[in-house]
Write a protein that binds this DNA or RNA. Structure first.
Lengths: 187, 187
DNA sequence: TGGCTTTATTGACTTTGGTCAATGAAAAAC
DNA sequence: GTTTTTCATTGACCAAAGTCAATAAAGCCA
């Protein structure tokens, strides 16, 4: 839980009563390897802080898996679209290793927003931050070659390379496993 | 200004005093065609609601323009990254037609956040919404062919096709003008 | 450990988008 | 309205990623 508090502190410091209120809403949950915490068609009614483990966020189209994102300890994992809009999820969220998460359900979170202005603000900061992350990824990928995209990834997030099977990485980069294999062989 | 209020109402209704407070922070500004409202290197210290006109958001790399986004009447336009972080902008924001914008400066907006919890919430909604837009675009870019991306764009946002020169559209889709021309000829 | 399944690599070939260059059309400037 | 510039189209060719298939390597489970 300390991890979560320090995550929050990067944006804004909660006082002790706000924090206690938050802690009361967290549900600790162990997740075995290769387990889905969200399936296509389900509505995502929680956000989950990752204490341990790795998750991938992907959808299936014409029999092919398309990986949109990976999540690591210290991240929040959720289908934010499904969570916000109440739509059924197009994505699966699956653990790649044995994991531990802390779930906060939507009703509880909305109540926290209502009760504490600081929480409302924290929610804004987190949404803003998510936006910046994705927008940066879009920009950097929109006009770069797959080769450059891979090289950038290696630089910025070498953790991914060791922790995640290559065929998932390829999908995350928007290319085929064979192509990624060839890019890696190129030097 | 009614446009802005109805934009807000899609997310949350402001009461009259909140609205009056907001209106007092808006600075109306006409913008001629092909005018920059933000240049590379400048810090973006405002968000601007578009009353009339079109803007494009792009950066220049190795002599080439890369279009990241277009903005239309009813949208907010800003370099959100530069605005939030106070970094110098990598992007230009340029009007494509004679336009009218309503600027809200950062200091004023932060003060609104402080004064009204509803405003804080509105800020969250807007950030969340921006995130969903970009995240969807990223997904479609990573896993769809340029051809499909174009077809999707035609369906979802036919306004773009009429209003924006084709070479800018091509850049927005991450392809060359010649390729877009050929995709269009394909049927 | 040995056998099975999944994942990664490599090769031959195809498809698609990029490049360069020429031409035509449309829009802007005078 | 005519000139000039910008933009869109088309063709020939090239480069890069995709496809299909075979093989090798790695991981997993009994």
């Amino acid at each position: 839980m300390d991890q979560i508090r320090s995550y929050f502190n990067r944006f804004l410091a909660l006082n002790d009563s706000e924090w206690a209120d938050f802690v009361a809403c967290c549900h600790k949950e162990p997740v075995p390897k290769k387990e889905f915490i969200l399936r296509q068609g389900e509505v995502c009614d929680y956000i989950a802080f990752i204490g341990e483990g790795i998750f991938r966020f992907y959808y299936v189209q014409e029999g092919e898996e398309h990986v949109t994102a990976f999540f690591f300890p210290g991240d929040f994992v959720t289908n934010y679209r499904s969570f916000l809009r109440g739509n059924p999820s197009e994505h699966y969220i699956e653990s790649l290793k044995p994991s531990v998460i802390y779930k906060i359900y939507k009703n509880d979170l909305l109540a926290l927003y209502d009760r504490h202005k600081n929480f409302e603000r924290l929610g804004r900061f987190i949404a803003e931050n998510l936006y910046l992350t994705v927008a940066g990824r879009l920009d950097s990928f929109l006009h770069d070659s797959p080769e450059n995209r891979y090289q950038e990834l290696v630089q910025r997030n070498s953790k991914l390379l060791q922790e995640v099977p290559q065929y998932m990485l390829a999908s995350y980069l928007g290319i085929k496993p064979e192509t990624l294999s060839r890019i890696r062989a190129r030097k």
